[in-house]
Design a protein around this nucleic acid. Structure first.
Ligand SMILES: [Zn+2]
Ligand SMILES: [Zn+2]
Ligand SMILES: [Zn+2]
Ligand SMILES: [Zn+2]
Lengths: 134, 134
DNA sequence: TTGACTAATGTAATAACATCACATATCGAG
DNA sequence: CTCGATATGTGATGTTATTACATTAGTCAA
């Protein structure tokens, strides 16, 4: 069970910035948005992000070097499934979902091959429904 | 059917470097290995990589900012499945595989959500069998 | 209270990854 | 040969991430 983590000042600022954002933000974009709050160096952002990632409150999108607030904060501890992201390259919107069958298939491959997985990235890039019809 | 692409000089050099490598290489590592062949700037590597990626001869591993020669050059054009990579964080070895069920599940999600996918990244990081028992 | 320990923060410098802008060269079609 | 398309050379710049070290703030036992 994910106990509500006590966030420090910087962690709170970074998390709120991501939560308010429409889409994923780069660490440097976060930094710029927090200059008014006293942020001056990338490390302040990266350190906060590291903790927020640990807590499962934020996800890193590897394919675009950006970060996004988790869309389903409550579910993560219950289900151990792998999380997939669909990232719209037009509007930046990110949809987060989990598929048990994909999770199971990946586990089967790793089991059969003696591979101990620690982290799995599934990112689908393309154009979302809204942007596709526009 | 993948027609054998005529590679240019730089493309050949970059591809051979990746083919000889044990594991994935960063663009800058490739650059360093090709200094003796006259390479001087990152762009020479990135331009060659761009074409090799187009041709499907090389893959980019988004989660580690590195590139690897395709392990199954013949199959890629025949089967349109998504390709997954298992990356060992100890020894760097990469295993490339394709799973029809995963491909299908992803397609189902995108279809149901009106998402037009252009590229999908599936990367499993962990420890390979050899390193796990060592 | 003090001292000692730990977590969090501040800051500068540097490393690592990637692209832009512009010049030059190479090669085949007409 | 001349033109256009593709490939290459080069420096500067942009973007992302980490290292190293100094400082501050909370915790707790003596
Ligand atoms: Zn989430
Ligand atoms: Zn969109
Ligand atoms: Zn391949
Ligand atoms: Zn290994």
């Amino acid at each position: 069970m994910t106990t509500a983590h006590e966030l420090t000042k910087n962690q709170t600022l970074v998390f709120n910035t991501l939560s308010r954002a429409e889409g994923p933000l780069s660490a440097y974009t976060i930094l710029d948005q927090l200059r008014g709050d006293g942020f001056r160096a990338p490390l302040q952002v990266y350190r906060a992000l590291e903790k927020l990632l640990d807590y499962g409150m934020v996800h890193r999108l590897e394919s675009i070097n950006a970060f996004v607030a988790c869309a389903h904060p409550h579910n993560h501890s219950h289900n151990h499934g792998m999380i997939a992201f669909a990232i719209c390259e037009k509007c930046g919107q990110v949809s987060e979902f989990s598929d048990d069958i994909i999770t199971q298939r990946v586990r089967e491959w790793t089991t059969q091959n003696g591979f101990k997985q620690t982290k799995t990235t599934i990112e689908i890039r393309g154009v979302c429904a809204a942007c596709g019809t526009a």
